[in-house]
Design a protein around this nucleic acid. Structure first.
Lengths: 149, 149
DNA sequence: AATATTTCCGACTAAACTACTTGGAATTCA
DNA sequence: TGAATTCCAAGTAGTTTAGTCGGAAATATT
């Protein structure tokens, strides 16, 4: 029940781009160094994010990547789903591959999976990169406060 | 972000035992047939559940398995954790292996993982096998209602 | 024009994990 | 004794994970 590195690295990378939003293209090299991720591996992940239109790229020297939308308009769910596929605890509650579970209407365990899925979706679909930037602000304020008092 | 068959089959098997709670030992063979699970594979899972004291066994002919506690006292979380280990989207929010994430205090993505974990835990720790039995009651009533009207 | 920087693309791979299978020993009821 | 069962340990094909490797294409700078 863990996300793979795809989703986890992907969110870190996207948050890195959010922190640097508006500063022109950021190189993969820099992101990879700051977030301590293999550059070549991250390349694959960001290719997926590009195809999902969450980031855009500038090729050539001085090129790099940037968010394709403002941080407030990109949710954690957008990022994770594009990298990990549909999110949920069991196939029978993910999108439309209802096959193999023919007794959906009477399956009680399915109800449990549905509740889990709903609660996860609620978190990831209501949290944006913008929210995360605010979280970081708050964290820093807290730290400074504790530091100086 | 899916559970493996361990957790999914495990919950089905435990719910089967809940349905038959109080009727003496239920054989693995019967559970496996009803739930359409490989008997030998289920054997491994139920061994884990037995070691976790969630079921007890009776050996020999006419033997089988039964819940070790009333359905209302066994949560979905008990079952899934015993089979899948700690539940959560990333290592850094699961139990005490905080190593490798040295900047916990300032890691914003960790906050996201923590929220996801909390919401999943909330569902699985507040749902018992007893609740699932009630759900089934309700489902059957609904079905009958729709059937006869 | 040449060069350095950077994204883009496709193939390969070791290690771990998943979802089993196989074979048999031990226990208990009839 | 024999049938039904749980208990136990090992093996295994296939998939997934988390990368690596090598180079082509595009672009800014010199």
């Amino acid at each position: 029940m863990k996300f793979s590195t795809k989703g986890r690295y992907g969110l870190k990378a996207m948050f890195d781009l959010a922190v640097n939003y508006g500063e022109g293209p950021i190189t993969l090299k820099n992101i990879a160094q700051r977030q301590e991720i293999s550059e070549h591996y991250l390349e694959q992940l960001i290719a997926t994010l590009r195809r999902a239109k969450l980031v855009k790229s500038v090729r050539g020297a001085q090129g790099g990547y940037m968010l394709n939308h403002p941080p407030e308009e990109i949710t954690v769910g957008d990022i994770i789903r594009s990298l990990e596929g549909p999110v949920g605890p069991a196939d029978c509650v993910m999108d439309a591959d209802a096959e193999e579970c023919r007794n959906q209407e009477s399956c009680v365990t399915r109800l449990v999976w549905a509740r889990i899925q709903e609660s996860v979706n609620d978190v990831i679909d209501t949290t944006t990169l913008g929210d995360m930037l605010e979280d970081q602000e708050r964290m820093n304020n807290k730290k400074n406060y504790m530091f100086y008092i």
